[in-house]
Design a binder for these strands. Structure first.
Lengths: 335, 335
DNA sequence: CTGTTAGCGCATTCAT
DNA sequence: ATGAATGCGCTAACAG
């Protein structure tokens, strides 16, 4: 029943050639006569031979596996990234192993080490924060890394980013163009590069329009659903707070909206948001006038290709930074 | 700079023991004198030795990796499963490699083969459909499989499921209890076991209440967002259609809701849904009176433990079926 | 073009 | 309790 593993050696015997030749056929090495190749191929499938990737890896010290490490997998953004990466990786013959840092830098460092020890050929990293305390460690592994969405400052590596500043700026400008003048900022801690850039964009739009930024209504935090919820709770309690807000990402946005929905107060009718991220459920976000859409699928695909090219030594030796443009989406406000 | 890989051999030399002893220490083999173990351990970290998992795998033919294969990663449900699985796997020393079948049975078969050839120790499978045409193939691999959410009929394996019938039944009953009498069904093709069971639950609730099921308003399809959208478009065009619907899952629900929102018609005020799945954005689903919440995190964790136990030969030899209870969530309808 | 040979790094008999 | 020797299945020189 259980087939005793058939190896390259059996194939060789069956085809009356050496194991080296079989190996060549397996690797599409052109230095094999057509006829020989044919014989080997026949032996292979008459025997039902399957290549043992582990043995190959031991020789080549390459696993054709790449690791992706994200703060968590359950966020829509990261999972779309993983999905599109996986598509492209599969197309190029790689597998994807996943890890999560649970938004902890310590865990992140541990996971990077763990992945590297699993001998993944490369790591796509969405770092938790801007701190680079453990950078020396990861350089040690001597393994290619590609950053997506956020970066670790001071680490030379390929990067896949979006134009956060411009995206935020356009969204805020659009609000201003519709007559909103007091616009608050609900965002992530600016140590994270992404949040920092979006904040800059917000500031730029305000400045260009000659509007004042009320520091009291610039709120930083860990941009999660609970943060958005509680922040909005606070804001609504303050009768002088602005009715219009720019929100740094979808989680915070979701939290803020959830709060407003659970409170039936009159004032919620006045609220207007612009926010980063567009998701399948974005039409349901009642206060969302503008959404900054990121080309997530392309980003994942790009990350996959960057890391593979780096591994296979294709492409420029210099680290590349790909900055994708965002798209501003206007929503009808149905209340 | 680049450390020339330090192997078990170097450690052995440094500790003045044989490689066998080092190996024993690495594997916590008790047959090592305490003093010797100490020496080896010191050698290990003075040299910065790292175990090469690939070499180990080649010997043991185990990779400590398990594969998960889902229709796609971009759905919240599957991603939550993967997330919680990954947590538990990591805790028990395993890694997770992901694959997607893109909702195609053919691709699914291919991926199972691919994963098996990568020598994953086990596969957690969320199959696309009920067809089991390629079952003989996968039995060949002689590798443990655990089904999650849905099953392939006729394949003996561990299963992690929820009580779909009861969940659906309770939700529909709750609607009935609030005075809804004409309730349609918007669901997935009943070849998928999950959909089939939910449909049964719907039928049971209707029957128990003595209500008639209008076949015209039982709609099957591929339960995706576009399906929900178009189905609702159709339904709304029919003035005799019911205002109350049970929906098979979150994607369909999202599609249906998106349609209703984009149409500002008067009638949408009358619409009420009950649906499977509760997500972070569920409060935004305007027509959702009841949601059937699945214990996703526990399911992922259970799947992880089942597959590992199977791999490590722990637990009962008989395939197990874990049926988790659902929870009915009531939402306020804020319109 | 093809065969011979020698490991990759580790776990594991079988001795001792 | 420890060591010597063997081989997991494959690839990569090097010869021929």
């Amino acid at each position: 029943m259980s087939k005793a593993t058939v190896t390259i050696r059996h194939v060789a015997e069956r085809a009356k050639v050496s194991t080296a030749t079989v190996s060549r056929v397996l690797n599409n090495n052109p230095c094999v006569r057509q006829r020989t190749r044919q014989t080997v191929l026949e032996a292979i499938d008459s025997l039902g031979y399957k290549l043992n990737v582990v043995a190959r890896s031991l020789k080549t010290s390459r696993t054709n596996t790449i690791g992706v490490l994200a703060p968590d997998l359950s966020g829509d953004f990261f999972m779309f990234i993983a999905e599109s990466m996986n598509r492209e990786l599969a197309r190029r013959g790689y597998s994807l192993v996943v890890g999560t840092s649970q938004s902890s830098e310590e865990e992140e460092a541990k996971q990077v080490r763990h992945l590297a020890e699993r001998l993944v050929d490369g790591i796509v990293l969405i770092p938790v924060g801007g701190s680079n305390a453990y950078l020396p460690q990861i350089s040690d592994f001597n393994i290619p890394i590609v950053f997506v969405d956020r970066i670790l400052k001071g680490y030379r590596a390929d990067k896949v980013l979006v134009d956060n500043e411009e995206g935020a700026c356009k969204a805020v400008s659009a609000l201003i163009g519709e007559g909103h003048h007091r616009i608050g900022y609900l965002g992530g801690n600016p140590e994270v590069t992404t949040a920092e850039e979006r904040y800059k964009g917000y500031c730029r739009a305000m400045k260009e329009a000659g509007l004042e930024i009320e520091q009291k209504y610039v709120r930083f935090g860990n941009p999660t659903l609970p943060f958005g919820y509680r922040a909005m709770e606070d804001i609504i309690k303050d009768p002088y707070s602005p009715n219009t807000w720019f929100i740094v990402n979808i989680f915070t946005h979701l939290g803020a909206t959830n709060y407003l929905i659970s409170e039936g107060e009159e004032r919620t009718r006045q609220i207007t948001f612009a926010s980063f991220d567009e998701m399948p459920y974005s039409p349901l976000l009642r206060y969302c006038r503008y959404a900054v859409q990121q080309p997530i699928a392309e980003m994942g695909k790009a990350a996959a290709n960057l890391i593979i090219d780096r591994i296979e030594g294709i492409g420029p030796p210099e680290p590349q930074t790909l900055r994708f443009k965002t798209r501003l989406i206007q929503h009808k406000l149905v209340r």
